[in-house]
Amino acid sequence: MHLILLLLAGVFVNNYIFSQFLGICPFLGVSKKVETAAGMGVAVIFVIVLACAATYFVYNLILVPLGLEYLYTIAFILVIAALVQFVEMFIKKSSPSLYQALGVYLPLITTNCAVLGCAVTNMQSGYNFIESIVNGIGGAGGFTFAIVLFAGIRERIEFNDIPKAFEGFPLALIGAGLMSVSFLGFSGLIKL
């Protein structure tokens, strides 16, 4: 039950985009079409879950025994960068069609703050291995949910006549703000 709550809290209450501001760059950058947004979302879920597992082991089996906890930023970002490269090579070999679909987005994920943010949150909240993974799935699921919904809205905005100064990012931000208001409705739903 606790794990289900953690998962739902990640998707709705503590949504990475609308309440924690993690991963805004890809959220604004690749949300022009629903298909590409969905591709990005799947890639992010994949990488975040792997990164949560990998950083959990790196922190608890390498940094803590050696007393090097303060180096976690450097260690985590290196693990994530290596992981993204590895995932890219693996997908390229094993499933060229998936690689075609995700291709462009995979390298970008290294600098997606949602990945590092998730790893740091797991570490700071002292989650165990299972909780870390569930938190990763929840957070990444929330990211995907948000980016797909938002891409749907932006596809519609495209066809409207809007003031010149608001074209592009300004209107996207205001749209994201309105979605964020609706996500406020979930706040307080789940107390962890």
């Binding site: 609308f18 309440s19 501001f21 608001f166 990012f169 300004p170 209107l171 996207a172 931000l173 205001i174 994201a176 703000g177 309105l178 964020s180 208001v181 996500f183 406020l184």
Partner: peptide, 9 residues
Amino acid sequence: APGAFFTLG
């Protein structure tokens, strides 16, 4: 959170 989006937009 919404205030941040509106202000920046």
